[in-house]
Nucleic acid binder design. Sequence first.
DNA 1: TATAAATTTGCAAGCGCGTGCAAAAGGTGC
DNA 2: GCACCTTTTGCACGCGCTTGCAAATTTATA
Lengths: 337, 337
Amino acid sequence: MSSKLFVSAQEVAEKAGVSRSAVSRTFTPGASVSAETRRRVLEAAEALGYHVNHLARGLMRNESGIVCLIVSDVATPYRSALLRELTIQLQNAGKVAMFINTDRSDGSVDRALQQAIRYRADASIILSGLPDKSITQLCLRNGQRLVLINRDDDQPGPLKINLDDFESGGRVATAFFRAGCRSLAFANSEAGTPSLMRREHGFVAAAAKLGLDVTVERHGSTGYEAGKVLAQRMLTRAERPDAVFCATDLLACGFMDAARHQFGLSIPHQLCVAGFDDIEQASWSSFDLTTFAQPVMTIATRAVEWLGSGRDDATSEVEHSVRLTAELIWRGSIRAG
Amino acid sequence: MSSKLFVSAQEVAEKAGVSRSAVSRTFTPGASVSAETRRRVLEAAEALGYHVNHLARGLMRNESGIVCLIVSDVATPYRSALLRELTIQLQNAGKVAMFINTDRSDGSVDRALQQAIRYRADASIILSGLPDKSITQLCLRNGQRLVLINRDDDQPGPLKINLDDFESGGRVATAFFRAGCRSLAFANSEAGTPSLMRREHGFVAAAAKLGLDVTVERHGSTGYEAGKVLAQRMLTRAERPDAVFCATDLLACGFMDAARHQFGLSIPHQLCVAGFDDIEQASWSSFDLTTFAQPVMTIATRAVEWLGSGRDDATSEVEHSVRLTAELIWRGSIRAG
DNA sequence: TATAAATTTGCAAGCGCGTGCAAAAGGTGC
DNA sequence: GCACCTTTTGCACGCGCTTGCAAATTTATA
């Protein structure tokens, strides 16, 4: 290994027989270089294995090209799917993704966020349920653009991407009604995330309008285990519901497993089930779950596009808010009307 | 918004009434500053909202603190679990994780990797099945330390973390034998990843030793759908196997679903199944899959520790190789001996 | 108290790069 | 040929930081 690890623009310049500025300009889109100089520079750069040092470039330009992804529950199917799409699109847009995991709620999150600020990330995308406002404020205060996905926040500035959770809840109630169900239930987590609550409220409101009974139960996280617990609670009741809308596909999977294996219920004949997210497992034949697909691709596209668009001009104060509709994916967990 | 986005060490120095070096030293562990100066600097920094600019620091130190995660199939349960652990531990070690997604096989991967090099990442952790050697070479050539997880590579330098796949395969064969199974099968993907092949070979070798029949079938990726297809192929045969080891839990899930819902087989009574990875779904009661748990936590710990340890000294040429054992998790998909 | 040793501090150079400015080069029309 | 305009090039400065070195300060020792 040579002691000098990286080649600098200086060396490229010497080899190409031009000035250092010429090298710099060759790698700066839109700068003024003649075709001939450019060619010679590129040739020398290739030969020497030169890579522009983005640390230095970011230092000069006051723009690092780094986008920070702030995520919790990465290992969850829905989150990892969204993450996948975001990273791919950021990559295609020439940005680079820096990762911050907020699963641990101790100080490490703060420390990690500080790190992102130290690297002068241009923007942060928050796809974390963590309701800690201080995080978003810290990002904003440090001049980052901010994208909030499925997460309420009343501060102006950030782009907010949300789904029509309320309406989706309503659509499920209608679907259950058409399927002949009369005693509805909503299985939610205790997290109390706004998007989850909107699903609940939309469902309850629509059910009321249809004159249907609806009970709501909340427990634990949005995961599989919580779904099982919720099933145990709701299915041991005297008047067992004949349809349940789970706030999350994972909850639904847990609920279905308990309903079938512990209570011997047949789905959809004795119990109709719907979920939300359209995680991969929802399509597995063990579940065959009717659910709402989050438009992951569109979410990512919108987020990245917005980041690419110029920095807020005078119009800085307008509310940037996008509302997407979740697509209902019909499968076998609700019987046909 | 002020036009001046960030406060510099200079401003902190002025406010604290010390030199700029003093500020720098305050934020450099191990540097020589008196308690009093340090206090005043920290106070001023806090008041002004100062954050060390790591772009500049990286430029000086020739060490960015960035670790690059090169990942494919992020949305896969096993990968996302590993990713989760890695990011958490990197974070705790004060490193920052940069994300590169190699799912798209077009030029974007190369472009993204170039990006990482441009940011002068100190190291890369490759948890991608992508067999492209040029990637690892590019990392090494640019002075990065390299960790390869479950991935063969004969070049010296990188830390290689692997599992005892071969032995695991053997243990499954034995377990099937004890369960009374006599006609074994191995369901693999076409990917041909070394770790998958080792599982296959270990299984086949042990089966042969036990005098058992064993058929091998390979198809598609390591996902659920491929598992279904494999089941269709293997279960329509005249002599149907009574036990199948799937190279991956996802394959196993697909296999089980097809076996049950399309072939009406009862698991484990008519068919024993084992998988590998211990993804969350393996523990779901719909699957209750006996499988091998990858020591995700240990893998991450080892990787991060190694990155933290000093750069290769004279001992640079020794092979860094770690071999971990996968823990067999007994569940209900293999009947008791 | 004087002097040697240890610690702290400021100065200044430089990390690799982008860019404004003025000089140089190239092009056009008469 | 000249005057004029456009494009290209090099110089030199500065982005925010670290660090070797020598001066200034504190502490320990005689």
